[in-house]
Structures are given as C-alpha cells and as structure tokens.
C-alpha cells in the first residue's frame, strides 16, 4: 500500500521526491558497510583505501549504500536530459561556416599556443577591415552588402570557436594558479606557527633561567623581598614577548 502511495506521489508532484532508497541510509547501515569494507581490505591484505573498495553480493538493504559504477558508455540521463562524459565542441565545418584557421594539428607546434594568439589577432584585424569595407559598400550599393555581412558573421563565429577551443587549457591554467596560491598560503601558515613556537620557546628558556635564580635565591633568608622583584621581572618579560 505504502509503495502505491509513493508511486502516486512521484507522478503527481512537481518536484519528484528523493529516490525511495534514501531510507536505507540509517546510521546502523552506514556503520555496517564501513565495517564490511574494512573486513574486505583486511582479507585482501592490500593497503588500498577502504572508500574505493567495491563489495560483491551485498544484502538487499545495503545495496544502495555502494555508489554505482561510472557509466561504461560515457553517457547517462538525468531528469530526461542526455549527458556525455566527453563534451565535444561542435565543429565549424558541418554548420556551413567557412573555417578561417588551420587544423589544430597544423598549428601550435610543441603544444604551445602562440599560433592561436596570432590567428586571433589576425581575425580581430580582419573584423575591422571587413567592417570598413561594409560601410563602403553600404554607402555605394546597399543591396550588395549581404555577402560582406556573411563574411563578418563568419569571422565572429570563427573567433568564438577559437576562444571556446581554448577553454580547457584555461581551466587547467586556473587550477595551476589556484594550487600555487594554496601552496603559498600553507607555507606561510606553517612559517607563522613556527615563528610563534620559537618565540614561546625563547620565553620558556628565559623563564627557566629566572626560576633557577629564583630557587637559589629563595633559600636565602631575605628571600621575601627578592621574590617580588623577580615576579615583577617575570611580568615585564611576559609583556615584552606578548605585547
């Protein structure tokens, strides 16, 4: 009966409810699958990460706690849309647009991208020149402007295509700079902690030597007065180190 109700809700509500297997994620089950994975690791006597291990023949109520394998074909569906693992940029050739740059294999020797920059600059200059020509044609015979407008459109589309081709490269480049800044931050933090540590160590050493004086003096009969002096000294030292 409850299953029927669930199915009914799934169809009628605007936003679908979570998949029914969410109920399997109880603390007990989560703990159990963790134990099972740990056992499997020990049985294999291999030192791989328990999180990455896959268990075969799980009981029914634990089956959903193991994430599914990545799709073999590289394609999957979510909310009725198709997704693929490798998102390819549509080629210019097939869309009836004149291609104004050489194939990737023919440019950018040694994998560097100077050629791309040159091509982009050339396209930018061509855009201006073509616009100049367009205004000229418009002033003489507007009926013939159609071809020029197509040229300009092609130039723009080519430009965008080259830009989008470069996106993966830029993404990697951003990752590099982010990692670099994180590295710098971590190192700075480590150094700051070390600095404080050294400071405190120096302070403790200072205290240690004071204490020794203190003890040697404390035994003397006139120690009472001296003690106060020493405490004052200690406070001055502390204030000095930790302003």
């Amino acid at each position: 009966m409850a299953d029927d109700d669930d199915a009914q809700n799934q169809i009628s509500s605007t936003f679908p409810p979570p998949p029914p297997f969410w109920k399997d994620f109880t603390p007990d089950n989560v703990a159990r699958i963790k134990d099972l994975k740990q056992e499997q690791v020990e049985r294999d006597a291999a030192d791989h990460d328990p999180a990455s291990i896959r268990l075969a023949g799980l009981p029914h109520n634990l089956r959903f706690l193991q994430p599914p394998l990545p799709p073999d074909a590289g394609a999957w569906r979510v909310f009725g849309n198709h997704y693929t693992l490798n998102q390819t940029l549509p080629k210019l050739d097939g869309s009836g647009i004149q291609k104004l740059f050489p194939e990737p294999e023919e440019r950018d020797q040694d994998g560097k991208h100077f050629d791309r920059a040159t091509i982009l600059k050339r396209l930018a200059k061509s855009l201006l020149l073509n616009f100049l020509e367009l205004t000229g044609i418009l002033s003489i015979n507007p009926a013939e402007a159609e071809a020029k407008i197509t040229d300009i459109r092609d130039l723009f589309l080519n430009f965008h295509h080259l830009i989008n081709e470069y996106r993966p490269h830029q993404a990697r480049e951003s990752l590099i700079s982010m990692m670099q800044s994180q590295l710098d931050r971590t190192r700075a933090e480590t150094n700051a902690i070390r600095d404080v540590k050294e400071k405190v160590e120096r302070l403790l050493e200072g205290l240690g030597s004071l204490k020794m004086d203190h003890e040697s003096l404390g035994g003397a009969t006139e120690g009472g007065k001296r003690r106060e002096d020493l405490d004052g000294e200690l406070e001055a030292l502390l204030a000095d180190e930790f302003p």
Partner: peptide
C-alpha cells in the same frame, strides 16, 4: 589575446 593565460604552456 596577448595576456591569455598559459600561451607558452603545452598540455603536457
């Protein structure tokens, strides 16, 4: 164009 990041880096 001239300041695009990583123009002199290849994928490798």
């Amino acid at each position: 164009i001239s300041i695009l990041p990583g123009l002199d880096n290849s994928e490798q």
